[in-house]
C-alpha cells in the first residue's frame, strides 16, 4: 500500500496539493476557456459583419455622404422611438395586470371579457389595429392625436400578450404561500395585493424586458400614423431621394444597435432576478 502510493506521485497524500488549490486550478482553467471562447466569438462577428459591410460597399451604390448629410435628422427620431416604446410598455403593463387578474377570475363575466381581449388582440395583425385606431375611429368622430393613437395601439396590443405572461407569473407563486398568508391573518384580497402580485411582478420583470426590446422594433409601425420617429424619417428621406437602400440599411443598423444595447441591460436584470430562484 505504501509502496504503491510512493510510486504514484498523484496518490501520495504529502505530494497532493491542498483541496483549495485544486479548486483554484479548476476555476482558472474555466476562466481561460471562457476567455478563449469570447475571443473566438468576437472574431467571428468581426469577420462576418466586416464581410457584409465590404460586400455592400463593393456594390458602389452606397453613398455615405448622403447618410452623413441627413444624419442629424435621422438620429433626431431616436428620442421619439424610445419615448413611444417606454410609454407603450408602461401602459401595456397596466393592461396586462388587469387582463391577468381577469384571466384568473372565478367570475365568468370578468373571465370572459379578459379572454375576449386576449383572443381578439392576438388574433389580428398589429398593423391593422394601428390603422383601425388612427383611421377608422375618426368615422365615428373619435379623432385621437397621432401620439395617443400610436401609444394606445401598441400598449393595447402588447398588453394582451403580456396578460398571459402575467397570468403565468401569478400562478408561479406557490399555492402553499397562500395558506401561509392566510395563517398570517390575510384575507384573499390582501393575499393577492401584498403577497401574490409583488412576487409575480418580480417573476415577470425579465419577461417585460424582453417585451420592451420587441417593442422598440414594433414601434416602427407608428410611422404609419405619421409620428416622425426613426423609421418614418429614414423612410421619408429615402423615398424622396431614391435612396431607400441606404436609409433602410441605416435604420436597420440603428434598431439593431438599440436592441443590443437594451439586451445587455436585460441580461443583467435576468441574472439578478434569477438569484432568488435558488431555493423556491
Amino acid at each position: 500500500m505504501t509502496d504503491f502510493a510512493a510510486q504514484q506521485p498523484g496518490l501520495d497524500p504529502l505530494a497532493m496539493p491542498p483541496p483549495g488549490a485544486i479548486v483554484e486550478d479548476i476555476r482558472q482553467a474555466r476562466r481561460r476557456a471562457g476567455v478563449r471562447f469570447a475571443l473566438a466569438f468576437a472574431l467571428t462577428w468581426i469577420v462576418l459583419v466586416g464581410g457584409m459591410a465590404l460586400a455592400i460597399a463593393s456594390t458602389g451604390r452606397v453613398h455615405p455622404d448622403f447618410i452623413a448629410e441627413h444624419l442629424p435628422f435621422f438620429l433626431g427620431g431616436i428620442p421619439l422611438t424610445i419615448f413611444v416604446s417606454v410609454a407603450s410598455i408602461i401602459f401595456a403593463t397596466g393592461f396586462a395586470l388587469i387582463g391577468a387578474l381577469g384571466r384568473i377570475s372565478r367570475n365568468p363575466v370578468i373571465y370572459g371579457i379578459a379572454s375576449l381581449y386576449v383572443s381578439l388582440v392576438r388574433g389580428t395583425p398589429l398593423v391593422v389595429q394601428i390603422f383601425f385606431i388612427y383611421s377608422a375611429l375618426p368615422q365615428f368622430g373619435i379623432v385621437l392625436p397621432a401620439i395617443v393613437a400610436g401609444v394606445f395601439a401598441l400598449s393595447f396590443n402588447y398588453g394582451a400578450y403580456m396578460t398571459e405572461i402575467f397570468r403565468a407569473g401569478i400562478q408561479a407563486v406557490p399555492r402553499g404561500q397562500l395558506e401561509a398568508a392566510s395563517a398570517l391573518g390575510m384575507t384573499e384580497r390582501h393575499t393577492m395585493r401584498r403577497i401574490v402580485l409583488p412576487q409575480a411582478v418580480r417573476i415577470v420583470i425579465p419577461a417585460i424586458g424582453n417585451e420592451f426590446i420587441a417593442m422598440i422594433k414594433d414601434s416602427a409601425l407608428v410611422s404609419f400614423v405619421a409620428l416622425q420617429e426613426l423609421f418614418w424619417r429614414t423612410r421619408t428621406v429615402g423615398a424622396a431621394n431614391f435612396a431607400s437602400f441606404e436609409t433602410l440599411l441605416f435604420a436597420a443598423i440603428v434598431y439593431w444597435v438599440l436592441t443590443i444595447f437594451f439586451s445587455l441591460f436585460q441580461e443583467r436584470l435576468e441574472k439578478r432576478m434569477a438569484q432568488s430562484d435558488r431555493r423556491p
Binding site: V173, Q177, A180, A181, G185, I195, P198, Q199, I203, R279
Partner: peptide, 19 residues
C-alpha cells in the same frame, strides 16, 4: 416553512405583522 420566496427577509417579517 412557506416563506414568501421572492420577498426579502424584511418584507417577509413585515407581512407577519400584517394585522
Amino acid at each position: 416553512r412557506r416563506i414568501f420566496s421572492r420577498l426579502t427577509v424584511y418584507e417577509n417579517l413585515q407581512m407577519g405583522a400584517f394585522t
